Simulated assay, not measured.
Amino acid sequence: MNKEECQLADWSAVGYKHGAQGQAATTFNQYQADCADHSIKADYAAFKRGHQQGLDDYCVYETGLNNGSAGNNYNGNCPSRRYPDFAEGYHEGLGRFCTYESGYDQGARGQGANRNCAEQDYPEYSQGLVSGQAKYEVIRAVHALEDELISLEQDLQRQDEFIADSEAVIVSKESTSDDRVKALLDIKNHRDERKRIKREYRRVEAELADLQMRLSEM
């Protein structure tokens, strides 16, 4: 806050704004420090009254339900003894969130468990998470094999280029007998290497097909 804002502040309204957003009253500390720099005292009593009114409007059943349904942490600024409706809504919302489907979706995206969905309270969520994580690992393996196939294809292309270069040496009028002998040996070596790469390509291709089939069944 600048000096003018500190002089004109409606501290009750400022407190209400933070309370209505579910924020703690400790947000006042920064205002207090800002205004102290201008030798102006921020009114904590007014801020606190407004903040409490804001919390009363925030800590209701609907807000708790929305927070729980999003899997968010419980807002400790809404203690259950003072705001039982908020707590009820939160736990109902959490029950909607902590399902097998939600756990599966998170696991399939490579995410860890939401700590609000404790296994002892929501075993279905944990089961979904494990299944989703298994799918995620298969997806990762599929991508790795796809990348490997691309690399092998590039290796095959390089071998074909090496062979073409050696064949060009053989037919060139400028090549010596030794050049042609060496080129023939190079061709043999590159063709052998090409066969090895092709075998590896078929192995990876078959492994990829198996994983893709497995993935389609998950």
Score class of each variant (00 low, 15 high):
residue 107 G to H: 04
residue 106 Q to L: 11
residue 100 Y to T: 09
residue 82 R to Q: 12
residue 69 S to Y: 06
residue 82 R to N: 14
residue 84 P to N: 09
residue 45 A to G: 09
residue 103 G to V: 02
residue 115 R to E: 06
residue 126 S to G: 02
residue 60 V to C: 07
residue 101 E to F: 00
residue 121 D to A: 10
residue 45 A to Y: 14
residue 113 A to G: 00
residue 46 A to I: 05
residue 76 G to T: 06
residue 58 Y to P: 05
residue 81 R to D: 09
residue 56 D to A: 08
residue 142 V to K: 08
residue 64 G to S: 07
residue 55 L to I: 11
residue 67 N to D: 13
residue 68 G to Q: 02
residue 130 V to N: 11
residue 116 N to M: 13
residue 128 G to L: 05
residue 60 V to A: 09
residue 86 F to K: 08
residue 112 G to V: 06
residue 78 C to V: 14
residue 141 A to H: 07
residue 109 R to A: 12
residue 116 N to W: 02
residue 121 D to G: 11
residue 125 Y to G: 07
residue 104 Y to F: 07
residue 142 V to D: 10
residue 135 K to T: 11
residue 125 Y to W: 01
residue 107 G to V: 07
residue 68 G to F: 03
residue 94 L to N: 01
residue 57 D to E: 14
residue 64 G to C: 06
residue 71 G to N: 03
residue 125 Y to E: 07
residue 70 A to E: 14
residue 84 P to C: 10
residue 72 N to E: 09
residue 56 D to C: 08
residue 132 G to S: 03
residue 116 N to Y: 03
residue 105 D to C: 01
residue 108 A to I: 02
residue 107 G to K: 00
residue 92 E to H: 14
residue 99 T to L: 14
residue 126 S to V: 00
residue 50 G to N: 14
residue 76 G to A: 10
residue 93 G to L: 09
residue 84 P to V: 04
residue 75 N to M: 08
residue 121 D to V: 12
residue 101 E to V: 06
residue 56 D to W: 05
residue 49 R to L: 15
residue 55 L to T: 04
residue 72 N to I: 01
residue 47 F to W: 13
residue 94 L to D: 13
residue 117 C to S: 04
residue 108 A to N: 06
residue 138 V to A: 11
residue 100 Y to E: 14
residue 121 D to S: 12
residue 92 E to W: 02
residue 84 P to K: 06
residue 63 T to Q: 08
residue 89 G to V: 07
residue 78 C to N: 09
residue 101 E to R: 01
residue 45 A to H: 13
residue 111 Q to P: 03
residue 86 F to G: 00
residue 47 F to G: 07
residue 73 N to S: 09
residue 64 G to R: 00
residue 59 C to V: 04
residue 142 V to Y: 10
residue 137 E to P: 03
residue 74 Y to Q: 10
residue 134 A to R: 04
residue 76 G to N: 10
residue 94 L to T: 02
residue 120 Q to W: 04
residue 48 K to R: 14
residue 56 D to L: 05
residue 50 G to I: 02
residue 60 V to L: 04
residue 126 S to P: 04
residue 64 G to H: 08
residue 118 A to H: 10
residue 46 A to H: 02
residue 135 K to H: 13
residue 75 N to G: 09
residue 105 D to I: 07
residue 81 R to F: 07
residue 73 N to V: 00
residue 50 G to E: 01
residue 108 A to E: 02
residue 118 A to K: 12
residue 61 Y to M: 10
residue 102 S to K: 08
residue 77 N to H: 03
residue 120 Q to P: 00
residue 56 D to N: 12
residue 130 V to A: 12
residue 84 P to I: 06
residue 94 L to S: 08
residue 120 Q to L: 12
residue 62 E to S: 11
residue 45 A to S: 15
residue 123 P to E: 03
residue 62 E to R: 10
residue 142 V to W: 10
residue 124 E to T: 05
residue 114 N to V: 13
residue 124 E to N: 02
residue 120 Q to S: 12
residue 70 A to T: 10
residue 91 H to M: 08
residue 96 R to W: 15
residue 92 E to A: 08
residue 134 A to C: 12
residue 103 G to E: 07
residue 85 D to E: 15
residue 136 Y to M: 15
residue 91 H to N: 12
residue 123 P to H: 03
residue 122 Y to R: 01
residue 89 G to C: 15
residue 126 S to C: 04
residue 109 R to H: 14
residue 95 G to S: 05
residue 87 A to C: 06
residue 105 D to V: 05
residue 114 N to F: 05
residue 72 N to W: 04
residue 76 G to M: 11
residue 62 E to A: 15
residue 68 G to S: 13
residue 108 A to W: 01
residue 74 Y to I: 03
residue 103 G to S: 03
